[in-house]
Design a protein around this nucleic acid. Structure first.
Lengths: 223, 223
DNA sequence: TGATAAACTCATGAATTCTTCACCGCTAAC
DNA sequence: GTTAGCGGTGAAGAATTCATGAGTTTATCA
């Protein structure tokens, strides 16, 4: 299992490397953005641990590029405490997991292991539900073969539903995933976006894929 | 299923309460240590979610006391990131599970469900009684293989009965576990919901699973 | 900076669920 | 057998949740 650790802070990087190695991983370190990019492309890593604050090339940029090129490794993003927006952007841009600094080594190890596991059950970046295809890499959606344009939020919502297909997801869960602040959520944005999605995806099609469970939340049809 | 949420931070408490309620739990909130202690002793909770940083009476103290008195609820401890010692102490002092802030709602819900299950010595999230299956995770009910839709309250009632299968539960017990501290009861709602349940679950089936114990309450058949 | 798209808020009506209430039938006890 | 109380039942109204259309703010990009 090979891991790329893109972390600028030398001391932290070295101690994480040590911890990961004790766990049996092979660890490369990149201390700047461009270096991380180069290494990520020239080796085959199982997991890339990416600090968003990197010199030379910004972590978010890397994330975006890697994802759009559909590289095979999973990405675990590290963000500093308080930079909430990074977290949101990170997840939107396709990080597989994130961790807020400061964290415990054990926590990091657990999550890396989880990502490695995930990576080995050859997963298709394209989710298919009936005649709906969601290409999570290219951010492309098709229904009955026809391409559909979704705005970023719409796509994020659809992906979240699709990821939990066959299960009811509550508004709170959706809200938490799409937004960050747990503010006095009196708004009905989620409902509105469900409607937008239905207009683009379910309208003039059957069966309806987006279902409502009264008092519980929404759900996308399973297979 | 009734839950006490001992969390000081108002906004977080409210949003967690909402999330838990969408899951079908009745949630009381305590925003200070002494309040939590009082409520925990004067109600019968299935799970107490305890933030260790509480005003007035410290969470660790509560934990220690409750444990030494062998109270019946399970305890899920919330700790702030980085306070490692808290975590260790928490587990040593007998918390049943812990969660480090910030956490995802999904994670919390999963753990609470697990604790509820533990409290009733059920390790399978699917409860089976004769040809009735209750999936407490997916909130799905089947009788004789056929899927049945239940409203949130109906499901909550059935789940409560199922967890106490083979035992008689009084109306007041049912009422206490289905509603939170802000509701007061002078009606026969429980009877009415029993009827709704019977219509959906017992009608046209045998044997009858929901039994009446005259003058005592209701009971669902054991195995 | 203005034009355009996206994100969000708000108000309203519809659908569904929740609760109450009145009345009836049944059970248990005298 | 009578009776007092308990539980069952149907229906109506209250309350909650959803769907929807339109308008407002915010972000994006030339």
């Amino acid at each position: 299992m090979k891991i790329l650790l893109a972390e600028d802070h030398r001391l932290l990087a070295r101690s994480l490397k040590k911890g990961l190695e004790e766990e049996g991983f092979a660890v490369d370190i990149a201390s700047a953005g461009d270096e991380a990019d180069f290494k990520a492309r020239s080796n085959t890593y199982d997991v890339v641990i990416l600090d968003l604050m990197l010199p030379h090339v910004d972590g978010l940029t890397l994330l975006k590029n890697w994802r759009s090129e559909n590289l095979s490794f999973h990405i675990l993003v590290l963000t500093a405490m308080g930079t909430v927006e990074d977290k949101v952007k990170g997840l939107d841009l396709g990080a597989d997991d994130y961790l807020v600094k400061p964290f415990e080594l054990n926590e990091l190890l657990a999550r890396v292991r989880a990502l490695v596991r995930r990576g080995h059950q050859a997963k298709d970046p394209v989710i298919k539900i009936h005649d709906l295809e969601i290409d999570t890499g290219a951010k492309m959606v098709r229904r009955a073969g026809k391409e559909i344009y979704l705005t970023p939020r719409e796509f994020a919502l659809l992906r979240f539903l699709a990821y939990h297909r066959g299960k009811v997801v509550s508004r709170s869960m959706i809200w938490e995933h799409l937004y960050d602040e747990n503010d006095d959520n009196t708004s009905n944005v989620v409902d509105v976006y469900i409607r937008y999605l239905r207009n683009k995806i379910d309208k003039n099609h059957s069966p309806q894929l987006i279902l409502t469970r009264w008092g519980e939340g929404y759900m996308i049809k399973g297979d």
